[in-house]
């Protein structure tokens, strides 16, 4: 029989399995911890910091921190919600996010996160950085304006597709996603059926000729906030 651990999230005691991350244990218990870089099929890297919780008094990325017995976790405190809101704001002002014509709008996880937090406008000055669009691939477009550096595509290409199409280049504010030694996407072995083409949470990796296929009002986040599928699962 598998040993079960007890952890507490926001004063609610839940069961967890050894080896689970805080995020996995919370998901299983129907507690949503916001995340952008984490993806169920990919190795977690704790990059976006949206899932930061206070675990036993210390800030930890819930997607990488394993649970331990008796761990006490704070998730929806005022301080953490403000921290997450600030992160969302920074992601909006550091890119060029023109939702009104983006094909991912309505199913974009960054946009959905801002909706969940009720953000009507970012509080920081817009940077409007100069970014490029790589449309060299016949079936896929890469729009760096919308990239939030979650590196899901990097991991999906390596871990799921057995390729190495994407890499992170540079550090800090100037970090960006590159393809095969800074060549264009069309020069790589990227295929439209690769998992890497599906995991982008925003509108950076876009499949050509399928945009706007879901009408307004029927898109993934039109009626229910991101995370509600996790929160609702626990009521079953």
């Amino acid at each position: 029989m598998t040993e079960t651990l007890k952890i507490t999230i926001d004063n609610r005691e839940i069961a967890a399995l050894p080896g689970q991350t805080i995020l996995e244990a919370a998901d299983a218990a129907g507690i949503y911890i916001p995340r952008l870089c984490a993806h169920p099929d990919l190795r977690p890297i704790g990059s976006c910091r949206m899932c930061t919780v206070i675990a036993d008094g210390r800030p930890q990325a819930a997607c990488v921190k394993p649970v331990s017995d008796g761990m006490v976790i704070e998730n929806e405190t005022e301080e953490l919600l403000e921290h997450r809101r600030n992160l969302i704001d920074m992601m909006f002002v550091e890119g060029n996010h023109f939702c009104m014509f983006c094909e991912r709008s309505g199913r974009c996880e960054l946009q959905a996160m801002a909706y969940r937090f009720g953000i009507t406008a970012p509080q920081y000055p817009f940077q409007f950085p100069a970014k490029t669009v790589d449309a060299s691939h016949p079936d896929i477009m890469l729009d760096h304006n919308r990239c939030i550096m979650c590196a899901r595509c990097v991991r999906a290409s390596q871990e799921l597709d057995g390729k190495n199409v994407f890499q992170s280049i540079g550090r800090g504010y100037t970090r960006k996603i590159g393809v095969n030694g800074e060549k264009d996407l069309g020069d790589t072995d990227m295929d439209v059926n690769d998992r890497a083409a599906d995991v982008c949470p925003v509108g950076c990796i876009i499949k050509k000729r399928v945009g706007f296929d879901v009408p307004f009002g029927q898109r993934k986040f039109d009626h229910k906030p991101i995370g509600s599928e996790i929160e609702e699962a626990c009521h079953v």
Partner: peptide
């Protein structure tokens, strides 16, 4: 969106 974030006209900003 134009009033809150610049909108389509702000595409000239870079």
């Amino acid at each position: 969106d134009c009033a809150t974030m610049g909108g389509i006209p702000a595409m000239r900003n870079n």
